[in-house]
Design a protein around this nucleic acid. Structure first.
Lengths: 215, 215
DNA sequence: CGTGCACTTGACAAAAATCAAATTTTGTGG
DNA sequence: CCACAAAATTTGATTTTTGTCAAGTGCACG
């Protein structure tokens, strides 16, 4: 359920899919590039920036996510890595061929896309919040949910992206992100073991803030 | 390309798809309802509200758009009409059966979903803008683009939704929406023949504002 | 021809952006 | 392992913008 492909399907596609890896900060493709493949994240985190407005991050992609969708043969966004990344690379021509032959694969892909669509709706919800602490709390909630499966018992939330990237994702200024983390820490809502490891201390207030209530 | 189904496919599905209609303001389904069908808008406009946070509008759906995606057999959002609406209703069981039989249909659906995903990214871009006039200009741009095909020569943009709905979609207060329309009118960027018919007067400045530049 | 709802407008307070500078972290080359 | 440069982050002061509360105003529909 996590990966795009079931094990059997992966075996089936083994001949056309290749495992590629990128180091941190690498650009995977740029908006407008000829779109010859789609990707399925295996490990690491990818950020996807809007094609038009290059400074907004449309999505963070985690293991299992699909990216590289195109319109008229061109990528509509650019993708770069946030951490070192490994991913399956599926050439579209081969994928398309496989899709006609294997309805089950098509169905899996449809489910995956619906998932992405739901994730996108959650992002919209986050962006629509009007208070900075609501955005950041919602953001942390999202990270926590995504890591829930692979979570170490400590309850720590790992924040793989830097403040600028969070700002670009949440539609706020870099300084506001920084201040908001500080404020949530001061108020005892969260604790920051390091900048990249956050723990929720006061769950009740945290949820309230994330939900947009005053708290 | 506009409708989910090509004519042949529609004929093929005629036995399972039914044409349904709703009057303005009707609720099509609620978040959490048992999801037994997906819809394909034929005419009119539908609004889709987030399941969790009931007061945010996640998307407006226009003719050709698909809605009614579900997770675990339940709708994840609620849908209601903004104007009178007619739509195809496709029971999921039948659709699923058809999908396994017809890879071309599956491929069409995949393309449609990618389209929705791109639209969703545009919405995120709009929400991420920090100035109210940028949001409203981007919103009008979006409406214009969607109406481009069916546009009457006047160049008028038709705004089928009310101020509250725009506010919920753009993540701002009702009053800010009202003020922003007023300000854009005063500045001679747009003209409002009525509240629902907007025309762009100063295209250059309009684009600049939509792009988030100062202007 | 009212009545209600959608919309506008005003005044004020709150929040976040911006500008600017200090500080901490991180990565690199000796 | 240390020194240093570059990058990331925090913090402060100020300004702008928008949200909120509170009245109006006008259009639409019965």
């Amino acid at each position: 359920m996590h990966q795009l492909l079931s094990d059997e399907q992966r075996a089936q596609l083994a001949t056309i899919a290749s495992l590629v890896s990128f180091k941190k900060g690498a650009v995977i493709y740029r908006s407008g590039d000829f779109a010859d493949a789609i990707f399925n994240v295996v490990s690491g985190v990818v950020k996807c920036r809007s094609g038009e407005d290059g400074d907004h991050i449309v999505a963070f992609l985690f293991p299992g996510d699909v990216f590289g969708l195109s319109a008229e043969g061109r990528y509509v966004s650019s993708a770069a890595t946030v951490t070192p990344v490994t991913a399956y690379r599926l050439p579209v021509s081969a994928l398309r061929r496989q899709l006609s032959a294997d309805p089950q694969l098509a169905y899996s892909l449809i489910c995956k896309l619906c998932q992405e669509l739901r994730q996108s709706a959650r992002h919209a919800l986050l962006l629509a919040r009007r208070r900075a602490d609501s955005k950041i709390a919602a953001f942390l909630q999202e990270l926590e949910r995504l890591q829930h499966a692979s979570n170490d018992a400590s309850g720590d939330i790992h924040v793989p992206m830097d403040r600028t990237e969070i700002a670009d994702y949440a539609g706020m200024s870099l300084e506001a992100v920084s201040r908001t983390f500080a404020k949530l820490s001061e108020r005892g809502i969260i604790a920051q073991r390091t900048r990249r490891h956050v723990k929720i201390i006061n769950r009740a207030d945290f949820e309230r803030i994330a939900a947009g209530e005053v708290a």
